[in-house]
């Protein structure tokens, strides 16, 4: 980088905290041994609450796993068994031999990743505009963007179907990406606007004084600082694309179908459902999302809560 475009460190106003201080942080971990210092009764109640809440959250996941390991004729056995009496990996073996599922997986990855990237790209600029510029109609536009979330999706589906049909976009990735982005954009925009609000205007002003262009300010200063928010918005958009059923079923066609409709189509029939196979497939396909969440959860929490509290 040349000397003329080198941006100096932003001045820190005496009365304000540094940008780094303003940036949202992940929730603080409980100090090690904090519970130990409480009275035994309180400690027991705290742990009991953790166990109950944890069990409440994890029991469905366990049931998913247990069902995937249970032979089909024992899925509804009575009384229900907490542990499969004759565990089998048949359902997973059936998955491995089903080429169609890999096609659905590929489509899901393509559509979700592009949706996430596109949503972040567009919402970053929109969010920045709403946060840092003042112009006529700004507030109306902000609420108009949000208003699109208030239409029933089924209603929008019919309209989108007709529009995509008219433009020959049905049964393409483009149709899915555009429709998913349509739904993720409002929330991403508002999420990122909240994040940009936490970035001091003085920082941007200082960069302008130093001669940085608007684009340079956005790309070299604002967006790096907003990385947690961008990741949170991207994850939200990714999950929206990954989980959608109705739009993927209607707009994608058999070749571009994603996992949710693909799994339903494959395992839920007119008269019966292949529960072990369905559960095994659900388990396998939820792993990438679960891993992404675990890896990025601190950004997600920080990004979602940014701007929630004015300080």
């Amino acid at each position: 980088m040349s000397a003329t475009t080198q941006l100096p460190a932003a001045p820190t106003p005496p009365s304000a905290s540094s940008p780094a201080d303003d940036a949202p942080r992940p929730p603080q971990r409980l100090r090690r041994g904090a519970l130990r210092s409480e009275r035994p009764g309180v400690r027991f109640a705290a742990w009991a609450t953790v166990v109950v809440c944890g069990g409440f959250g994890l029991l469905p996941v366990y049931w998913l796993l247990a069902t995937s390991l249970t032979p089909r004729d024992q899925v509804f056995s009575y009384p229900p068994k907490f542990f499969p009496s004759a565990p089998t990996l048949d359902a997973f073996a059936a998955l491995a031999s089903n080429d169609q599922l890999f096609g659905y997986l590929r489509n899901s990855v393509i559509v979700s990743v592009i949706t996430a990237v596109l949503s972040v790209l567009v919402s970053a600029y929109m969010g920045y505009s709403f946060s840092k510029f003042r112009y006529r109609g700004r507030r109306s536009l902000m609420y108009l963007v949000l208003a699109s979330q208030m239409f029933p999706q089924a209603l929008l589906l019919v309209t989108l179907y007709s529009v995509f049909s008219a433009y020959g976009l049905l049964n393409t990735y483009t149709a899915l990406v555009l429709s998913f982005t349509t739904f993720t954009l409002p929330l991403c925009v508002w999420m990122l606007k909240g994040f940009f609000d936490t970035i001091p205007d003085e920082l941007i002003e200082a960069a302008r004084v130093d001669g940085a262009s608007r684009l340079r300010i956005i790309h070299s200063i604002v967006l790096p600082l907003a990385a947690p928010g961008l990741i949170a918005a991207g994850l939200f958009a990714f999950v929206r694309g990954w989980n959608d059923f109705v739009f993927a079923l209607t707009l994608a066609g058999p070749e571009k179908q994603t996992l949710p409709p693909g799994l339903v189509n494959t395992f839920i029939g007119e008269a019966s459902t292949a529960w072990p196979e369905l559960m095994a497939a659900s388990l396998v396909v939820s792993l990438p999302v679960a891993i992404a969440f675990i890896a990025l959860q601190k950004y997600l929490v920080g990004g979602l809560t940014a701007g929630a509290v004015k300080g």
Binding site: K132, F133, R134, Y135, R136, G137, S140, L141, L144, D201, E202, I204, E205
Partner: peptide, 19 residues
């Protein structure tokens, strides 16, 4: 501080018309 866009960009009425 707030940054401002030129007034000639898009009026609210025009935006609503386009929408």
């Amino acid at each position: 501080m707030s940054l401002t866009l030129p007034q000639s960009a898009l009026s609210r009425r025009r935006v609503l018309q386009l929408l």
